[in-house]
């Protein structure tokens, strides 16, 4: 019986968990976080290219969701709402950073993600991966906000076009156009690696 209860709990949808969280059930919110925190941390990281602070920012995203859980109205998918909050936070963060840009290139490369087991990996391979990571980030940074969001969500978070359209607040056709334009710009920016 207990197994059945725990199994049915794991089958609960995000919306059901959110509705439970709305009644003050923190275990439901923990389960939601367990499902989504890796995606959100990585999304924030792709947006900011700052490994050191991406977890803190992702926590801020969940904190905002948690604080507004009482106002949650299950009209859209939970992940759409989550990524919308994450996107707004990332855009604000990137803008404030651009204003006070003091990070050196070395610092930036230092913060460019955890590239696996750096101790056992071939140093030249590690250097290449750091370099390509920075190059991709810089190329994505050169895109418009909407193109960047569309590409990161489609490519890395594997969100369907419908959800990306809801996050951005546009039509599915517009998302496809952003992805197409973004790809064209990325070809230009990353042609040395192609």
């Amino acid at each position: 019986m207990q197994t059945f209860v725990s199994l049915s709990r794991t089958m609960e949808s995000d919306i059901e968990l959110m509705l439970r969280a709305k009644t003050g059930d923190d275990s439901a919110f923990t389960e939601l976080m367990r499902r989504h925190y890796k995606g959100v941390v990585n999304y924030v990281y792709r947006f900011t290219n700052d490994r050191a602070n991406s977890e803190d920012l992702a926590q801020e995203v969940f904190l905002r969701v948690y604080r507004s859980v009482k106002r949650y109205n299950p009209q859209a998918k939970f992940s759409t709402w989550l990524y919308k909050i994450a996107t707004n936070l990332c855009i604000t963060e990137v803008k404030s950073r651009n204003k006070n840009q003091t990070v050196s290139l070395d610092e930036m490369q230092e913060n460019t993600g955890d590239l696996g087991d750096s101790k056992s990996e071939d140093p030249s391979n590690l250097t290449f991966r750091r370099e390509i990571g920075t190059a991709i980030f810089e190329a994505l940074k050169s895109l418009s906000e909407r193109e960047r969001v569309a590409i990161i969500l489609c490519k890395y978070e594997d969100l369907p076009y419908e959800e990306v359209a809801e996050v951005i607040g546009c039509t599915i056709g517009a998302v496809k156009t952003y992805v197409h334009r973004g790809r064209m710009k990325l070809i230009e920016k990353l042609k040395t690696y192609l």
Partner: peptide
């Protein structure tokens, strides 16, 4: 090529 930008390793104590 975008696949070469790997995910970050996240601390287990996030939650």
């Amino acid at each position: 090529l975008l696949d070469n930008w790997h995910t970050v390793q996240i601390n287990n104590d996030f939650i």
